[in-house]
């Protein structure tokens, strides 16, 4: 695998390119799926649980992408997040860390995996748990695809308030996904 073939997508997505960001996350999700299934299947955990982790990691990558230094290669950064979320998950689901050989990589391989597996996370229900302003902003901007200015006009908010609400809403969703999955 060419280690840095995904980096151009990351650089574009940091500049706010929707298509590049989707492509990046879609490709990373295949890497992450192979990684988490590989690790979790060894301790008899389900594909659903692996998918939970894939989604948690994608959310983390999205929310923390400002910590990626464009001068560095991308995959070690991705791998560090994937590994951190795996260890955190195992620690909080009471698996002994020695059960899973975390460090004998298996560098994250891209697996051809047309998976229809869903995670146990119910986005609709998580959205219900958001404060109203955040829910409105996230739904309009992230699910319905309205622009920030359209959303601001429609709901009588300022544009900066829409942006802040979307950001806080996603952050809250990321935290909920972390707590929600398989707990």
């Amino acid at each position: 695998m060419d280690k840095d073939q995904l980096k151009p997508f990351m650089l574009k997505s940091l500049r706010g390119d929707d298509a590049a960001h989707r492509e990046l996350l879609a490709r990373l999700s295949r890497h992450l799926r192979a990684y988490y299934r590989g690790k979790l299947s060894r301790i008899g955990r389900s594909a659903t649980e692996a998918e939970d982790l894939v989604q948690e990691a994608l959310m983390a990558i999205h929310m923390r992408r400002h910590t990626y230094d464009p001068a560095e290669p991308l995959m070690p950064w991705i791998y560090a997040i994937a590994r951190y979320k795996l260890i955190d998950h195992l620690r909080h689901t009471r698996a002994s860390m020695t059960d899973v050989p975390i460090d004998d990589v298996d560098p994250i391989g891209e697996e051809d995996d047309a998976s229809g597996v869903e995670s146990s996370i119910d986005l609709g229900r998580l959205m219900e748990g958001l404060p109203e302003k955040m829910r409105t902003a996230v739904k309009a901007v992230k699910l319905d695809g309205l622009s920030v200015s359209e959303t601001a006009a429609k709901f009588g908010m300022s544009e900066s308030s829409v942006k802040v609400s979307v950001h806080r809403g996603l952050k809250a969703l990321a935290a909920m996904i972390g707590r929600e999955k398989t707990s």
Partner: peptide, 12 residues
Amino acid sequence: LIDMLGTNVEPV
């Protein structure tokens, strides 16, 4: 999830 995160991506 990817659809959601990839809609109106904020520049960083």
